[in-house]
Every structure is written in C-alpha cells, then in structure tokens.
C-alpha cells in the first residue's frame, strides 16, 4: 500500500508516470494542478478510475481552482487532517510533481 500525492496537471509527464505506478490497493491524492483530473467530464478521470486506487482530492486546492462545483463523486474531498490520517494509513508515500 502506497500513498501517491500527485501535484501535476493532466497531460504532464509527471501525471503519466504516476498513473503508470499506481496499484489497485494504493491511495491517490490529487493536489495543486492535479485537481483538474477530478472534473466529472475529464478524460483523465477515467484513467484514474481504471487504476482501482482510492481517489482523494485536497479540498482547499479544488475550491481554489473552481473544480469543486463540477467534481466527480468518485473522488473524495479531504482536508489537511484527513491528509495526515491518510499518511498514517500508508507505510510509504510518493510525491509526484
């Protein structure tokens, strides 16, 4: 079980490299410019779903970007306390940016 924190926009090489390494029992947290992948109609979201990983988005970043009103229900919005809890639940954490 690995927690992947993804801070790169859909279409970037960091985004693609992250998705290539995510396994079904991993956690994935979208933050910064990765929050656009949580848009309900985003083609990138289908790729995230296909990984089978649990999908989260940092709520403050999603609200800043204006993503929240059009966000997919498959992605769980979390605050910083929940981010800390996620970190505790996963033995390893990889940052992609």
């Amino acid at each position: 079980m690995i927690l992947h924190t993804l801070n790169a926009s859909p279409g970037s090489t960091a985004f693609d490299h992250c998705l290539a390494q995510v396994a079904a029992d991993d956690g994935l947290l979208l933050m910064g410019n990765a929050v656009y992948a949580a848009l309900a109609n985003a083609p990138a979201l289908a790729r995230l779903r296909a990984t089978g990983a649990r999908l989260h988005v940092l709520e403050d970043d999603a609200r800043t970007a204006g993503v929240t009103p059009q966000m997919s229900e498959d992605v769980l919005a979390i605050d910083f306390d929940a981010f800390v809890a996620l970190s505790e639940q996963h033995a390893r954490q990889v940052a992609w940016f």
Binding site: S9, D61, R63, T64, A65, G66, T68, P69
Partner: peptide, 19 residues
C-alpha cells in the same frame, strides 16, 4: 493548460491567494 484559468467559481480564499 491556459483554459483552466477560465473555470468559474474559483475561490482564492481557500488557499489564501488572490482569485
């Protein structure tokens, strides 16, 4: 990526930045 600037309802206050 510039089109992402046009999303309505951006909330700068959520990250303490200007919208």
């Amino acid at each position: 990526h510039g089109v992402l600037q046009l999303l309505p309802q951006q909330e700068g206050a959520a990250s303490e930045t200007r919208s």
